[in-house]
């Protein structure tokens, strides 16, 4: 708990200032990450030598115009897609050295996901969906952790419902609970509020914020919404596959202002 204050204090991080691998509290980082789709004339460079890192117990938003490479970056960081060159390190593991199976296990053990379209398993109840990653791994969920997540997400009376019987906001809260319950090293959220109305969206962001503040989770969120990004500790702006700016303690207005200069 001693370093609470340090991590809660937004810090301006200059990536080149901290040599890679030295910071103990860096959970994930990309080093000279390049991703090229297609070949020859049709080749599109989605990530153009990006280096960025994410600290423990920090809530980072990634923003950028459409086609800036923010989703690709998220997918590569999460081990769902592979880089053309460069490397991704989660904890102390380099992803490109892993086999397909090891990658799967890493996702299962260390990474949580929240998707724009909830992506719950329609045949399972909310409770089953929440414990699904643990069940797949053959582990029993820690009852205390489960109760805590369910309480935080205010899902206590919805556990036996199937996704079809829940509202969008409730479904996304189930998805968030699923990402949180296994206490992963890092949670990747891809436009988590994209399908929600503004009230549910704000509610969800509140939960994510408190997951970082109270439950010491680490969250990386891709978003279009300056309002959502303003809830993060730090915003990383991408354009044309490059990191063009970082902003600590962002405000909606500052973000909007900067986004205008990016022409989106």
């Amino acid at each position: 708990m001693s370093d609470d204050t340090e991590t809660l204090t937004p810090t301006t991080v200059e990536p080149r200032a901290s040599p890679p691998g030295t910071a103990v509290d860096v959970v994930a980082r990309a080093v000279d990450a390049v991703k090229v789709y297609g070949k020859g004339d049709a080749a599109v460079t989605a990530l153009d030598s990006i280096s960025v890192f994410f600290r423990r117990q920090q809530f980072t938003a990634i923003m950028g115009p459409s086609g800036s490479g923010k989703s690709t970056l998220l997918h590569c960081l999460a081990g769902l897609d592979s880089l053309t060159s460069g490397k991704i390190v989660i904890g102390s593991t380099e992803l490109d050295t892993l086999s397909e199976k090891e990658l799967t296990l890493l996702r299962r053990e260390k990474i949580g996901f929240i998707f724009q379209s909830y992506n719950l398993v329609p045949t399972l109840t909310a409770a089953d969906n929440i414990v699904l990653p643990l069940a797949i791994a053959g582990r029993k969920p820690d009852p205390a952790a489960f109760d805590q997540v369910v309480t935080t997400m205010r899902l206590g009376d919805r556990l036996t419902h199937r996704p079809g019987e829940l509202s969008g906001g409730q479904q996304q809260r189930v998805a968030a609970a699923r990402a949180l319950v296994s206490k992963p090293d890092i949670i990747f959220a891809d436009e988590p509020t994209g399908n929600l109305d503004s009230r549910s969206g704000a509610e969800l962001l509140g939960f994510l914020r408190s997951a970082v503040d109270d439950a010491h989770q680490t969250i990386v969120m891709v978003t279009h919404d300056p309002g959502a990004a303003a809830r993060a500790d730090r915003v990383v702006f991408l354009a044309d596959g490059k990191v063009v700016r970082e902003m600590s303690d962002p405000t909606t207005d500052a973000i909007l202002e900067y986004m205008k200069t990016l022409g989106s």
Partner: peptide, 16 residues
């Protein structure tokens, strides 16, 4: 496909 993709994303191995 979508559901399977999700399961794979959250850690269902190929053999599973």
């Amino acid at each position: 496909a979508r559901e399977l993709g999700l399961l794979r994303a959250i850690g269902l191995t190929r053999s599973q």
